[in-house]
Design a protein around this nucleic acid. Structure first.
Length: 933
RNA sequence: GCCCGGAUGGUGGAAUUGGUAGACACGUUGGACUUAAAAUCCAAUGAACAUUGCGUUCGUGCGGGUUCAAUUCCCGCUCCGGGUACCA
């Protein structure tokens, strides 16, 4: 074999590793550049071809920046806590650590084979006590801080205690859960437990009874972003709502800063938008309504206080605490029944039955504070307990849901906003409500005649002046539930004394995950850690048995890379001052509402502590697309062990079954043939299967789905690297198409890239595979070719267009081959150019060229525009915008002259004849267009 | 429902600022080399019409528009993918 990639790649991988070529130093005179990949969860299936897509892109960029003279930090690690290893442990008894370490080892091997420029000395693993010590440490800090709205940052709880001692709960603007106000005297009179309970309403990491997403199948609570449409994102198990005492992080305190920070980062609009919507800030007013014959008042949140005069009834969420208090005896039966049925309805049912209008009248009336009108109070589950106050004022004329509800229950509808040219009609006759925020107020007392925007601000002033309500901002974002009833996660550095949680002291960290006999909850339903022997402090106080969620460890890993071996600190001030934040983060946009929000919160908190110097952790982000798998299907005739080929399946009643794509061969585009012998061997029950063929073949159906081991459609890179080498594999992944696009994986085409790389090799070698370059001065054509490539590659990398980069190489190598170019001056530039994409072959050729140092540190070739200068340009000449012929003209020719020559051309005359020439447009170096008619 | 992407040959895709649509590959077909195969190389390859050649017409999801010129800008639609979902 001429180009022996196996030998070459092994050789240079060893060289890089032995010589620590990719080591990043925390001291350097060079400018820093921090480039980060989202670290993987090492699953049992190993790396599949989707993982390296972003890694290869970031690796190319990292190498390009190294060549550009930057001190590049390009680390990798493992997000090692996760459900799959624990589920496996439950099934087999294998400790999740054993599984995880094995998987990490396999991932590492696979990553190494691709030739990444990682500084492995900085590797972090979230399950390593040296690492999770700092996850626990941050939790302790969160516990001992509260959020001061005035200072706009987190402050130590000790400050808060001081304030309580001096002034009680008054005169302080801090983020907290609702509680009864108290005076300094009352505070001092409280016992330890009462004080601690109050402080819990302020801490940034706090314990509370909250409605959580409980997943019985996984035996744990999940965060909102871990649930999708009523099912767990991992595993797809049903999730229910449950009231539980859980740790949460008060991320809502940072809602505004999380929103504002988005203005400062260079991320895709779609991810920013997803985060904005997830945070869901809305401005409006909170309004207090009296209840007839009851002492209670009901607070509602509305973004449309201008429509207050049009509020004709009120709706409470079934979970609203006041519901049963105000329900009259006559209505108690139906209301109770309604609450019961809504409780039984699963999240799933609620979602699918959105259009169904249900509710029950409580028998009580609220009083509209502006006009004194009586408003029926209903209970209905279209009002959510978790948003706003769990109660709404219903304005059926201007809210479509209220409108539908009013129609259904025959409630009054009163119009209060009029469109500009609207002729007023009876709202009871309307088909839809008028929801838009445009128009003039009518029937609205003090705000009648005003435009909506004006009316909103005026009515809030009015409400505030009369103590009827206040201006208010509301968020959709919930505090992040931080407890998991699982084994495989970070233990909380928390113990309980008389039921009150206290944190361990910092010198007791890390609190290591204890051994347990089984990875299951206890018989009494406590989390697995309750099984651990001696799970208590030295003083005998019981330790917390919950563990932290998956996002705990990943929220600050990028900081630890800056100073990964530090045993004294999370990371040193110096290290952080040097690396600051991540300059470019490569990863999937599916983390928009999870990891990417949590990390930003985590970083902002550490910023408040003065530990990080930049508030936003990830300056720029590139979201690579997902690589989807092509799943193959076979069709089994129902009830028989007979499989029918794709084209004939309509004639039978069949069940489609996924089949391993390793058993399927692409014989033509979109045509897939089953390897019947292999299929019979694949699973024992297939051994005596029968087949109904078409044209002597069994054809499979196919569908594009996410790549997953359970769909039998995942492709791992190992086989391809074995067959073609890592450089070809890297180039091919990039050649597939634009990085950000989702795309189905297809190996058709890798041959072309492999051919290219061998062609590159042959530029440097003769027919006998002898290295052969000439020191002669290159020809103009050769220089033009290489400089075209230099310019292209530079521009392509700058705009993260790696697929066009690969074709630029192909064009250049094709041209140089054509020119039979083996000039050192040209080829050296070519090697440096391709080194980020195909580092192994580049390093080999570089050394063959006689160099003894790595090509990695060679500067990227400089583009010289003079090399591309041409004296003439072949103008496309069009007549009336249609290309008719081409004409080579000197580039410095005047427009007039060029136009004239083009017009006189024989080919032009054919079209011009008998017509009048109206106009000649000449765009230098672009086009000539002759307009006739 | 709402929001965001996208739609270009048989396939993946290119066209960076409105200026030669289909670069670069794959696949297919034909040919060279070879005992043969692999590998390699050469040629053709958007469609239709015309083929004796020069060619001609159409063509970037659909329908309009702006312009000397539109894959690119504007208006209206269709389909596909993704996100989100009673958020008051």
């Amino acid at each position: 074999m001429d180009y022996n990639f196996q030998e070459i790649e092994k050789k240079w991988q060893k060289y890089w590793s032995d010589n620590k070529i990719y080591k990043a130093s925390n001291q350097s005179s060079k400018p820093k550049f921090y480039i980060l990949d989202m670290f993987p969860y090492p699953s049992g299936a190993g790396l599949h071809v989707g993982h390296p897509l972003g890694y290869i892109a970031s690796d190319i960029y990292a190498r390009y920046m190294m060549a550009g003279g930057y001190n590049v930090l390009h680390p990798m690690g493992f997000d090692a806590y996760g459900l799959p290893a624990e589920q496996y442990a439950i099934q087999t008894g294998t400790h999740p650590e054993v599984t995880t370490l094995k998987n990490i080892e396999r991932y590492r091997e696979q990553l190494d084979k691709i030739g990444f420029a990682y500084d492995w000395d900085r590797e972090v693993r979230t399950c390593d006590p040296k690492y999770y010590k700092w996850t626990q440490w941050t939790f302790i800090k969160l516990f001992h801080h509260y959020y001061d709205n005035n200072a706009g940052k987190a402050q130590p709880v000790t400050r808060l205690v001081e304030h309580f001692q001096n002034s009680g709960s008054a005169n302080i603007d801090v983020r907290h859960d609702a509680h009864e106000p108290f005076t300094a005297g009352q505070w001092k009179a409280m016992d330890e437990q009462q004080q601690q309970e109050l402080l819990m309403h302020y801490r940034l990491a706090f314990l509370s009874d909250t409605m959580v997403n409980w997943c019985p199948e996984l035996g744990t609570v999940l965060a909102n972003d871990e649930v999708s449409e009523g099912f767990s994102v991992r595993g797809g198990h049903p999730v229910e709502r449950k009231l539980m005492r859980q740790w949460s992080l008060r991320i809502t305190a940072y809602a505004d800063r999380l929103l504002d920070g988005l203005e400062k980062v260079d991320w895709s609009e779609s991810v920013k938008k997803q985060q904005r919507e997830w945070i869901g800030r809305s401005q409006g007013a909170s309004v207090l309504f009296e209840v007839e014959d009851h002492p209670e008042k009901i607070e509602v949140f509305t973004t449309r206080p201008d429509t207050l005069y049009g509020a004709t009834f009120m709706v409470l969420a079934p979970e609203h605490p006041i519901v049963l208090n105000i329900t009259t005896p006559q209505c108690r039966g139906p209301v109770r029944e309604y609450i019961e049925t809504t409780k039984k309805r699963s999240e799933r049912d609620r979602m699918t039955e959105v259009k169904k209008i249900t509710g029950a009248f409580t028998g009580s009336y609220a009083i509209n504070p502006l006009n004194g009108e009586r408003m029926k109070i209903y209970v209905a589950d279209y009002v959510l307990a978790g948003y706003g106050t769990g109660a709404i004022m219903a304005v059926p004329a201007h809210d479509s849901r209220d409108f539908a509800f009013a129609k259904h229950f025959l409630l009054p509808i009163l119009q209060v906003v009029k469109r500009p040219d609207e002729i007023l009609t009876d709202p009871l006759e309307w088909d839809d409500s008028y929801d838009a925020k445009e128009g003039t107020l009518i029937n609205s007392g003090v705000i009648t005649g005003l435009e909506v925007a004006e009316a909103i601000s005026k009515i809030i002033d009015y409400l505030e002046e009369n103590n009827l309500g206040t201006r208010r901002i509301n968020y959709r974002l919930r505090d992040a539930i931080f407890s998991r009833q699982r084994y495989w996660g970070e233990p909380f550095p928390v113990y309980y004394k008389n039921g009150i949680p206290y944190t361990l002291s910092e010198d007791e960290l890390p609190l290591k995950l204890p051994p347990v006999d089984k990875f299951l909850p206890t018989e009494s339903g406590e989390p697995p850690l309750a099984r651990a022997e001696n799970w208590k402090t030295a003083q005998g106080y019981p330790l917390e048995t919950n563990t932290m969620p998956g996002f705990a460890g990943s929220s600050g890993y990028y900081l630890r890379y800056m100073d990964p071996q530090n045993d004294e600190e999370y990371f040193s001030k110096d290290a952080n001052a040097y690396w600051r934040n991540v300059d470019i983060y490569f990863g999937g946009d599916e983390h928009a509402t999870g990891h990417l929000i949590y990390s930003r919160f985590w970083n902002k908190f550490l910023f408040d502590l003065g530990m990080t110097v930049v508030e936003e952790p990830f300056q720029k982000m590139i979201n690579q697309g997902k690589i989807q798998g092509r799943t193959s299907f076979v069709y089994r005739i129902t009830g028989k062990n007979t499989y029918v080929s794709l084209g004939l399946k309509e004639k039978f009643s069949v069940t489609p079954l996924r089949v391993d794509i390793g058993l399927v061969q692409t014989i033509a585009p979109e045509t897939y043939k089953l390897d019947i012998a292999g299929f019979k061997k694949w699973r024992s029950e297939n051994a005596d299967a029968e087949f109904i063929l078409e044209d002597g073949k069994y054809l499979c159906g196919s569908e594009v789905e996410k790549m997953s081991k359970s769909y039998f459609n995942s492709q791992n890179p190992d086989d391809l690297i074995e067959k073609y080498g890592a450089d070809t594999f890297r180039l091919y992944e990039m050649f597939l198409g634009p990085l950000e696009n989702d795309k189905p994986w297809d190996v058709q085409g890798i041959e072309g890239v492999f051919r290219f790389i061998r062609k590159l090799w042959r530029l440097f070698h003769d027919e006998k595979n002898q290295f052969s370059v000439s020191d002669q001065k290159p020809e103009a054509a050769e220089l033009k070719s290489i400089h075209t490539a230099i310019k292209h590659l530079h521009d392509d990398i700058e705009r993260f267009s790696f697929n066009t980069g690969v074709s630029a190489f192909m064009i250049c190598v094709n041209e140089l081959t054509e020119l039979k170019c083996n000039k050192r001056m040209v080829l050296e530039d070519l090697v440096k150019l391709i080194a980020p994409y195909a580092p192994h072959i580049a390093e080999e050729l570089w050394h063959q060229l006689g160099h003894s140092t790595s090509v990695v540190h060679e500067p990227f070739p400089k583009f010289d525009a003079a090399m591309l200068r041409e004296d003439t340009f072949e103008y496309p000449v069009s007549i009336n915008g249609k290309l008719r012929f081409k004409l080579r003209l000197p580039v410095d020719m005047s427009k007039e002259q060029a136009g004239e020559i083009a017009l006189k051309d024989e080919a032009a005359q054919k079209w011009v004849e008998g017509n009048q020439v109206r106009k000649i447009i000449v765009v230098p170096r672009k086009i000539i267009n002759i307009v006739v008619g």
